[in-house]
């Protein structure tokens, strides 16, 4: 697995405040890496170090194998950064804004003109080519900012809270755009508070709290590691109590309980099974229920979501 971002014991102090505490981060090429943590956890600090805006107090950070300390100029050419505010020049026209950054990245004419068209097409702002930035909506400004990060075709995009302050439609558009960028082969490091959105588009996540990286890796693996027990929900049409007794006898089941009140012993109901077995073993549970004559109308594994994992891992303490 080829890594595009690597940090070794990355530490950042602001006076006596320890903002990052020996963070070891690895982001593989092509990943969409969701960086999660409460406010003040160290997300922005990590991102600012990776973008060379901040020199770490100790430790090292590499982008594509290049040290952000040793060769910040080379790192800057490989990254596109979008801070948690727009970073746009309101008095410029949309094309001027993109032209300015393309020029800064050394892209010459006539390539710049065609590049601006391509970027505007990518972020669906072609019609706004001549508009002033100040006249764009919040979501449009965010997309324009994203287009700017793409001007020099970087391999890594670092996006700090890109969805903050956007309305639901703009968020959906942004999410689709990030998916498109991911399909284009870009590695995206994105921080957000909206965990459900991250869960939908991230291949990897990192959870940070009080400057300490609590978990990092592929989403499934983290889910698996942090929630090794699965929860299976079963609904039987009648005889829920005998079904409960039967399930308690099965060796693969850790715990089972009724999920709702029963009118009487013969009534149907919902059962919640805490289970740590394989897919075959969960299938065997269903077979057992049916073979014992229980009429099952619902049998499903409840997926742990990112929010659940996040709450499980973090203590909700802000640095």
């Amino acid at each position: 697995m080829e890594l595009i971002v690597e940090t070794h014991n990355l530490t950042q102090r602001f006076g006596t405040h320890l903002a990052l505490n020996q963070v070891n981060l690895s982001i593989p090429k092509g990943a969409v890496y969701g960086f999660i943590g409460p406010n003040g956890a160290g997300k922005t600090t990590t991102m600012r170090i990776l973008t060379t805006l901040l020199q770490p107090t100790a430790g090292e950070a590499f982008v594509n194998g290049i040290s952000v300390r040793q060769d910040p100029d080379a790192v800057r050419k490989m990254i596109g950064f979008m801070p948690d505010y727009f970073g746009v020049y309101e008095s410029m026209r949309v094309w001027e804004y993109l032209d300015f950054f393309a020029h800064i990245y050394g892209i010459k004419q006539p390539r710049r003109t065609s590049l601006i068209q391509e970027l505007l097409q990518l972020v669906d702002l072609t019609e706004k080519h001549d508009s002033y930035v100040m006249n764009l909506s919040r979501g449009m400004k965010q997309r324009l900012s994203l287009a700017r990060t793409m001007a020099h075709d970087p391999s890594l995009l670092i996006l700090d809270e890109p969805a903050s302050g956007l309305d639901p439609r703009a968020r959906i558009e942004l999410r689709e755009l990030l998916r498109e960028l991911s399909r284009m082969g870009k590695t995206i490091m994105v921080s957000s508070h909206i965990l459900s959105e991250l869960a939908e588009m991230c291949s990897h996540i990192g959870i940070i709290e009080r400057g300490t990286l609590l978990a990092s890796g592929p989403v499934e693996q983290i889910m698996q590691d942090l929630r090794p027990h699965k929860l299976i929900e079963v609904q039987v049409l009648e005889r829920a109590m005998p079904a409960l007794q039967m399930l308690k006898q099965l060796p693969t089941i850790n715990d089972v309980h009724l999920a709702n009140e029963l009118a009487d012993d013969q009534a149907g109901g919902k059962l919640a099974i805490n289970f740590s077995g394989t897919a075959e073993e969960s299938s065997a549970i269903l077979s057992n229920l049916i073979s014992q004559g229980f009429r099952v109308n619902h049998f499903a594994e409840r997926q742990s979501d990112l929010e659940e994992v996040f709450l499980h891992v973090t203590q909700g303490v802000v640095a």
Partner: peptide
């Protein structure tokens, strides 16, 4: 004021 300085400083311009 516009918070564009960070964006500018992440570019290769010295």
């Amino acid at each position: 004021d516009r918070q564009t300085i960070d964006v500018l400083m992440v570019t290769p311009v010295r």
